[in-house]
């Protein structure tokens, strides 16, 4: 199944794109989506412990199951204000 991955700020720079479509197996979790990204862009690994994840524009956990057509966002530590 296909999901849309959104990447922001430095994560976007590391991957060279802010939005990518990924093919993942049914039942996959956000963590599996992330691991798949890290294989392609190893530089992302440094954010393993500090990033946040959102599924369909709601904060989520890495254990969250994802579904066909979902939007999965990975975000580095925030710096608004």
């Amino acid at each position: 199944m296909r999901v849309t991955v959104r990447l922001f700020a430095r994560l976007r720079d590391l991957a060279g794109s802010g939005e990518v479509i990924r093919e993942v197996p049914p039942g996959a979790t956000a963590r599996e989506v992330w691991n798949d990204l890290v294989l392609e862009w190893p530089g992302l690994r440094e954010y393993e412990k500090t990033m946040s994840v959102a599924v369909n524009t709601e904060y989520a956990r890495m254990t969250a199951e994802v579904h066909e057509g979902d939007e999965i966002a990975f975000m580095p530590p925030v710096s608004g204000g």
Binding site: F8, A9, R10, D13, T50, M51, S52, A54, Y59, A73, M75, P76, P77, V78, S79, G80, G81
Partner: peptide, 20 residues
């Protein structure tokens, strides 16, 4: 989830604060 990229004399850098 907002980020600022600081452009300074000599370069630029993404600032990172708290894990949201």
């Amino acid at each position: 989830p907002i980020w600022k990229r600081e452009h300074f004399d000599g370069g630029d850098v993404w600032l990172e604060g708290a894990t949201a």
